[in-house]
Simulated assay, not measured.
Amino acid sequence: MIWRLLFDRVLRRVDAETAHGWGTAALRLGLGTPLVRRAVRRVLAPRDPALRVRALGLDLPSPLGLAAGFDKDAAHVDALTALGFGFVEVGTVTALPQPGNARPRMVRLPADRALVNRMGFNNAGAEAAAARLSAPRDRTTIVGVNIGKTKRAPDAAADYRASAARLAPLADYLVINVSSPNTPGLRDLQAVDALRGLIATVREGMEQAQRTVPLLVKIAPDLADDDVDAIADLALATGLDGLVATNTTISRDGLRTDPAQVAAAGAGGLSGAPLADRSLAVLRRLRERVGDDLVLVSVGGVETPEDAWARLQAGATLVQAYTGFVYNGPLWPARMQRGLARLAREARSGSR
């Protein structure tokens, strides 16, 4: 495969964030015009009726979308949709622009099909994201916006409220990110009392903007099971539309990568294949707890159609991926959609 050769011979020799920059530049150059995007979308975008799903009040062409983290500034949503994602979640966006943590801040662990990142919510801020999202979008593009806390903001609630007020009018749904391990104190906001107030504050921001969109919260895989249950109960009690499970993990258990290389990668959130088992376990626990009352978006360690199908069978309404896309290249979304459609059709015909 051309992508595998390119990845092994070139990209693996380059800093992961630099390679990401090259990839997004290629998206901008190759899929920068509506005419080209339409041509690519006709070939790659999901069209199989077996994949269609209605969730969050939206009609989606597929349950498989791109997780937050790849398109932090909402700069490539149309191009990513053309490649085959059923929806794209941008961000994490903060109310104010910030540079994030010092580089290097993204490291590959190829033996584990994983990434370690400590990006620190580097982004151009809510105003810049809003300007991009205000531009005309391709008709089929569905965009969620993931919002987080500006590192230097003294009042987290006010910071989230400002982002919600600015971005809700331009989003198909909003996600409150309280689970990144790379912003000091952020995960403390997952505590039920803090999260209850934060949900109310974000809703105030949407009311200020006079547009209410579906609201979800993204949680960490490192929560104890009792804390997962408590957040599930809070989501039901506060009328959240859904939960995104899960973000990256701070655990390094069970990795195949040499321990010295893992240590050299440093602190940060681990994503990719090693996250799969815990992400799936959290999904199952959430679905058992909330029944059919919430949309559950499963993310973490999804790399094959079988991975995505297992999440749907375990109770996910929607599935997201990021690291699988990084490792497998621009044609991966379309391959995933074809494989997922095949599995759905086999299940309906009783052959699985």
Results as ranks from 00 to 15, higher is better:
170 L>K: 13
265 A>K: 12
287 R>K: 12
176 I>F: 11
107 V>R: 13
173 Y>E: 01
128 A>P: 00
243 L>S: 11
346 E>F: 02
23 G>P: 11
291 G>V: 12
153 A>E: 04
285 R>M: 06
222 D>P: 00
246 T>D: 11
36 V>T: 12
28 R>G: 10
99 P>W: 05
350 G>E: 06
234 L>A: 09
298 S>T: 08
291 G>S: 10
329 G>W: 04
63 P>L: 03
202 V>L: 13
328 N>D: 13
303 E>K: 00
337 Q>Y: 08
287 R>D: 10
282 V>P: 12
347 A>C: 07
215 L>H: 05
236 L>W: 11
70 F>M: 11
161 R>V: 15
316 A>Y: 12
184 P>M: 04
29 L>M: 10
337 Q>G: 12
235 A>W: 07
281 A>R: 07
142 I>Q: 09
256 R>E: 11
74 A>Q: 03
46 P>A: 06
271 S>K: 02
314 A>Q: 06
272 G>P: 05
330 P>L: 05
125 G>H: 06
299 V>S: 08
278 R>K: 04
249 T>M: 01
59 D>T: 10
176 I>H: 10
163 S>L: 10
186 L>W: 00
105 R>P: 08
45 A>R: 09
313 Q>H: 11
152 R>E: 15
111 A>S: 14
129 A>C: 00
220 A>E: 05
4 R>I: 04
168 A>Q: 11
281 A>Q: 10
347 A>Y: 06
330 P>E: 05
103 R>H: 13
216 L>A: 03
322 Y>L: 04
175 V>P: 08
37 R>K: 06
116 V>I: 15
224 A>P: 14
256 R>D: 14
318 L>P: 09
10 V>M: 13
312 L>Y: 02
336 M>Y: 01
257 T>I: 00
214 P>T: 02
